[in-house]
């Protein structure tokens, strides 16, 4: 098991990096840009084999930031390619992340139905 302080440290550092990107670059960077950047960045690093070591030492500190979601997509795709070949490239990513994506959409919908924006 990954020690809790390592999850805190790695997770905190990944968020700190996001903060630096927001504060030190163009003012037009929105949370949407950050999320897209992290998921793509995580997926690419994972493809290069650089994200897995981070998950080993950081645990949830590396998987909970959205870059971890990108990592999961890539790993799913790569594993499925090993088993199924070409088709795996298309099915593997979503299969590996299906629970998260569905949860996000369904909980998102439920929260929207149950609550009203307070402003």
């Amino acid at each position: 098991m990954v020690p809790l302080y390592m999850a805190f440290l790695i997770g905190g550092l990944l968020c700190l990096l996001g903060q630096l990107i927001m504060d030190l670059t163009k003012a037009s960077i929105t949370p949407g840009h950050i999320l897209v950047g992290y998921i793509s960045g995580g997926a690419i690093l994972s493809g290069l084999g650089l994200y897995e070591p981070l998950v080993k030492i950081g645990g949830a500190g590396a998987t909970i930031p959205l870059s971890g979601f990108g990592h999961l997509l890539t790993q799913g795709s790569l594993k499925a390619v090993e088993q199924k070949g070409l088709l795996g490239a298309f099915s593997g990513g979503v299969e590996a992340t299906a629970a998260g994506i569905t949860a996000a959409v369904v909980f998102g919908y439920l929260a929207a139905v149950l609550f009203n924006p307070k402003g």
Binding site: C15, G18, Q19, M22, P31, G108
Partner: peptide, 17 residues
């Protein structure tokens, strides 16, 4: 700021909001 955007909870926040 990014502390609540980067984690997957921030992704959920953007969806629900």
């Amino acid at each position: 700021g990014a502390g609540s955007i980067v984690p997957i909870t921030g992704f959920a926040n953007a969806i629900v909001a």
